[in-house]
Design a protein around this nucleic acid. Structure first.
Lengths: 239, 239
DNA sequence: GCAATAGTGTCTTTAAGACATTATCTT
DNA sequence: AAGATAATGTCTTAAAGACACTATTGC
């Protein structure tokens, strides 16, 4: 199973991100084999001869995360190729990030002792295998910065959502709080960001909410608009 | 020389950009061998076993562009791995962009029929080898967008420069014209962008100028500041 | 009624765009 | 002096931040 060490091998590593209970979560798998047996790692795998990079990423997504291709936004982030990053030999790994809404709990795949979602905050003292801490960090930073100037935040939400839920995406991913009124103005007046529906969310039945015991005015529902870029962008305050 | 086709090979391709006579130029080499013999291509080469990606990029920069590592800003852009992109086999190529000031004319390297700078405008109808048109386009777009929110523009200039020259970088890379007064205000008041020197450019002796026959007030000299990000950014108008 | 969330309005501040004006050089 | 480029100033406009206020629900 381990590749011979005289050749350069190409792999993909995936940073799969979703929101769970209002917190940014990443999917990690626990390695069953050496190297780094027992350590938590990003799902990944070697590219097969003749296989496209994106195809390999979707294959890993399906095999190790039990996720279909329709459910996520997949985007290449960066390639890691330091010679010593994998003790099995010279492995060049193309890292992808995958963003999705309400992603399910993963099934255990092959060569995997365990697989589960980790809240990013709980990951502080968990050592990751290989250079995956750096791979993860670069994808997180990419996601954070792309929320500023693209409409990517909607990929964390179901097809229909409220402005509050959208604001919750920004707050969770950025780890900040945003003024509700100003955010509402910016979101609803950014061309191409939101498409207004003529329905309202049923009070007390909003999916992402776990602490709304006492009502409030029902929020209007929106879905993603056609635009992909936010101009002007929605900048983080202290950058 | 051609790699066997049963393995996946890893290469780097470089988009080396500089300004010449106020126009954005890219370094291309003319291939001496098949595939694509005679076609113009980005400089590149296969990674050696145990070699870091950046080290390979610097090696190509030295071998095929006669450029030392101190002279340029090097940055990874994207990785291309479509199975059919190289007829010799499955080649995954990590693309880098390299930006520098007043880069010299290249010497002819091995396996290279010719090497020279091309103004981007003159490249419209020149077919590039492999998928290098797409590789080049992605690096250009990266450079254009990074001028907006980083201080990267200074890498196109010598150590000491004027605000006009800096504005010229933006105008050349973006293909626009900018209001001189407003640009001056933005550049000089963006924290960390510029460091003011107490000297002025000698009139008529500015390097980048080829059409300044009749004087004008001497411009103050600046050098790059410590900052790397522009906050708020310097946005292109029609994005 | 109160508490909670949604949504609007208003005032201030920041910063960009348009463009006039002054400063300093060459010829 | 005329012409050119550099640098500053002024007015307007766009948009964000702070925050008050209204709207609509559950209890």
């Amino acid at each position: 199973m381990a590749p011979p060490s005289s050749e350069i091998h190409v792999a993909v590593d995936l940073t799969v991100l979703t929101l769970r209970d209002g917190a940014l979560n990443v999917l990690l798998i626990q390695r069953e084999d050496d190297p780094h047996r027992g350590a938590w790692a990003l799902p990944g795998g070697f590219i097969q001869h003749g296989e496209d990079l994106e195809a390999a990423a979707y294959r890993v997504l399906s095999d190790e995360a039990s996720l279909g291709s329709g459910a996520v936004h997949l985007e290449q982030v960066r390639t890691f190729g330091a010679p010593g990053r994998d003790p099995r030999g010279h492995v060049v790994s193309v890292s992808f990030m995958a963003l999705g809404a309400n992603l399910p709990d993963p099934l255990r795949g092959d060569d995997v002792a365990d697989a589960r979602w980790w809240a990013l905050e709980d990951l502080g003292d968990v050592p990751l295998a290989f250079d995956h801490a750096e791979v993860l960090a670069s994808s997180i930073e990419r996601a954070r910065s792309k929320l500023e100037y693209t409409t990517l935040a909607v990929t964390f939400l179901p097809e229909e959502f409220t402005v509050s839920q959208l604001r919750g995406v920004y707050e969770s991913v950025w780890g900040t709080t945003l003024d509700a009124g100003n955010f509402h103005r910016k979101a609803t007046r950014s061309e191409g960001f939101l498409e207004e529906l003529d329905r309202h969310a049923a009070p007390l039945e909003e999916l992402d909410r776990h602490a709304a015991p006492t009502g409030g005015r029902p929020a209007r529902l929106y879905r993603a608009g056609q635009g992909t870029s936010l101009m002007p962008p929605l900048l983080r305050a202290g950058d």
